[in-house]
């Protein structure tokens, strides 16, 4: 395969994972701007395991992802007590604390960054993408999915029918942490070098942008968003130094034109109707 295409697809796959992680939390009506923090934890923990301790890649990815999920549980307990804008800021603060921590933490390179990781392949990334997608679809059809829907509509209503709202949110937060952590581990062993600046607040914001612009209503929207907005900056390369200005204009414009995102449930139904002939 063309190595440029391979690179674009790899970055896209990692972006899809980040979008899924943002969506996992967003599905319970909470928006996190701190997922880059989880990504950093997954990246640095797995990199430390493979580079400094000589572990194999797969167990390192598993431990990196689990570490991010565990931190998710730990941080989620206090942070999830916050609502609305406070929750957004709380997660943002979490992400920045993690980033500045790794900027100063010498065992994983501090400001010098970390090198020596390798091994992530395109196939690996998409196996993880496929696995998480299947899990998302299965969860969406399960009782848990309906519960999340109820949560999205009304907390009190959900509580009244006996749902443990807080526990569900905590699990979703850790689940989002797990996915972002694994994305980070894959990223570290694909990019071959990491530094704390790779996990800044814009990475978290992008993950959420993928979901909101792609469409919050279905998991396919998150994936579509990640695909489109990974390809867009590449497609705009011909604009040279005006590239990112154009990217900004397109994002703002799209948000105005399609505030519900590109892909909505109604649209999916129409698409399905188009492909599935009715008797």
């Amino acid at each position: 395969m063309n190595i440029y295409l391979e690179g674009v697809l790899a970055a896209m796959g990692i972006n899809i994972l980040l979008a899924l992680s943002a969506r996992a939390i967003l599905a319970t009506d909470r928006l996190s701007l701190g997922n880059a923090g989880f990504m950093a934890i997954g990246a640095y923990v797995s990199a430390y395991l493979t580079v400094s301790l000589g572990w194999d890649l797969y167990p390192a990815i598993a431990v990196g992802g689990s570490a991010a999920a565990a931190i998710g549980l730990l941080v989620g307990l206090p942070v999830l007590r916050l609502q609305g804008i406070y929750f957004v800021m709380g997660t943002l603060a979490f992400g920045e604390v993690v980033r500045t921590f790794f900027q100063n933490f010498e065992p994983t390179g501090g400001a010098y960054g970390m090198r020596g990781m390798f091994g992530t392949t395109l196939t690996m990334i998409y196996v993880f993408v496929a696995a998480f997608l299947v899990l998302f679809l299965a969860l969406g059809r399960s009782r848990l999915g309906y519960v999340a829907d109820a949560l999205h509509d009304d907390d009190e209503a959900a509580r009244s029918i006996g749902i443990n709202v807080d526990l569900l949110r905590l699990l979703a937060f850790a689940w989002g942490g797990l996915i972002a952590g694994i994305a980070g581990a894959l990223f570290a062993h694909y990019a071959l070098y990491i530094e704390s600046g790779n996990f800044n607040f814009l990475v978290s914001a992008n993950a959420v942008l993928f979901v909101i612009l792609g469409g919050v209503q279905t998991v396919w929207g998150a994936i579509l968003g990640a695909v489109i907005f990974s390809l867009l900056p590449e497609g705009l390369r011909f604009l040279a130094d005006w590239r990112l200005s154009a990217y900004g204009v397109i994002l703002v414009g799209l948000m105005i034109l399609r505030p519900e995102g590109i892909l909505t449930r109604a649209m999916l139904r129409r698409l399905a109707g188009f492909f599935v002939r009715k008797p």
């Binding site: 063309n2 674009v8 970055a11 790779n198 390369r237 590239r243």
Partner: peptide, 22 residues
Amino acid sequence: YFADEGTNPQESISAVRKVAGD
């Protein structure tokens, strides 16, 4: 053949892949 590396490690990877592979 120019490719913008965006002062950014991720973008630079893509840029090198572009000029080398494409």
